[in-house]
Design a protein around this nucleic acid. Structure first.
Lengths: 227, 227
DNA sequence: TAGGAATAAATTGCTAACAATTTTGGATTG
DNA sequence: CAATCCAAAATTGTTAGCAATTTATTCCTA
């Protein structure tokens, strides 16, 4: 595929993924091709390709044949699976990062913390969210396994959608303090402590989610049949 | 996208992935759209979409703009990353599988072993390879995390390509004995032993790979400059 | 007025033709 | 004879328009 098209598709994918992550496009929202063409100033083929990708790769869009695309509504089961998978990968990334600690890598971690801190100080909400997410990518890159980094990237996107869907108080993000403590443990080479902190960090995010209640797909028969 | 097209694209993807996994399409082989259309009796658009997917999702195809697609030639670094990532996921799947042991799941594992055994007894080479790969998918399904299962599926495909690329004696597969021992440990609920066996199992596969030598992209300058 | 069939509108799916790019092979020239 | 350039062939990239499907509306009937 031509570079131009690929770049364009990527642009649309990111634009949509961002909008979904930030809850500007709520779960369930219809994504009509013609509307997207108009709003994004894009070719319909590119829009379609982008939707395909968001559906098959990132799973944040659902496509029903002949009926079009809409923002996905992951089930509670899927949400839990995504978090569990992410936890597993994050945990091993921590271990690899410690094993792979060079001077350059130490610097990258510290710089990332600074960026997050700067965003908070300046009160730049949007930047805060972005940098907070970037922290996990930086950690993956420090770990040095590109495959894990890719897998994590996908899971982070899906996580964002899930948070948008299931979070009660909007926009509780990763806390900078937890990132700070995590980096401290990593730089100290304390694997156990670092992994423990990462587990806690993942748990903290999930704690604000309503992954228990919620109707979803009620079994009407079971709910309504005679007692 | 229409069901028909999706099914067709999936067919092409699987056909190509199989051919790549089984080394019928060697790494580096060119995949001309017109040829594929002719051989597969497919629409060019479907062929293109399939190639896109194989490139962006599974990474077993490389697409160069305006120059077409060819079977990927993962670097040694990438090969190692894929194996490391797969090892991590397989390891955690073992743990989840043990925690998720129902009668039904025990049965699935035993049945899978029977299938593999049957293929070996009948000397069905092709079936052996397939069932040997399926074992890991079944284990993932027993573990019950669909996201991990998906991630693993992708990594298994990539692993196959890597084996095709870097294996000296062709077609050394997973050994049934190792699968057997693994299932024994899982059914016994012995997490440590099961994880140890899985680690060993992954190591066994890698042991037959030439992941050290091989030129790849030699640094000509470093190699040829005056001593 | 409720139900349902027929029609119209909107939307997605598909294809074939055309455009752009790269490769190949040969002719030309120093 | 080697190198360079040019044209033809092969291959990929792009687009517009039509076909098929679904959804909404209208109108008819009991």
């Amino acid at each position: 595929m031509g570079t131009r098209a690929q770049v364009e598709i990527k642009r649309i994918v990111e634009r949509l993924a961002d909008a979904i992550s930030e809850h500007r496009l709520p779960p369930g929202a219809r994504l009509t091709e013609a509307k997207l063409v108009e709003v994004l100033g894009a070719n319909r083929n590119h829009v379609r390709a982008a939707l395909q990708k968001l559906a098959s790769e990132y799973k944040v869009v659902t496509i029903v044949p002949n009926r079009g695309a809409c923002v996905a509504q992951p089930t509670i089961k899927e949400a839990k699976d995504v978090f569990a998978a992410r936890g597993i990968i994050e945990r091993s990334i921590v271990e690899l990062a410690i094993a792979n600690l060079t001077a350059k890598n130490r610097n990258r971690l510290l710089k990332q913390l600074e960026k997050e801190d700067g965003a908070i100080r300046r009160g730049e909400r949007q930047e805060m969210i972005r940098e907070s997410g970037n922290f996990h990518r930086v950690l993956a890159q420090v770990a040095g396994n590109e495959v894990l980094d890719e897998l994590l990237a996908g899971l982070i996107t899906r996580t964002s959608l899930i948070i948008a869907l299931y979070q009660e108080t909007p926009n509780v993000q990763c806390s900078i303090e937890e990132h700070q403590a995590l980096v401290d443990a990593i730089l100290a080479g304390d694997r156990e402590q670092a992994q423990h902190l990462m587990d806690e960090h993942m748990a903290t995010i999930q704690r604000y989610l309503l992954l228990d209640e919620r109707p979803g797909e009620v079994d009407l028969r079971a709910a309504l049949e005679e007692p």
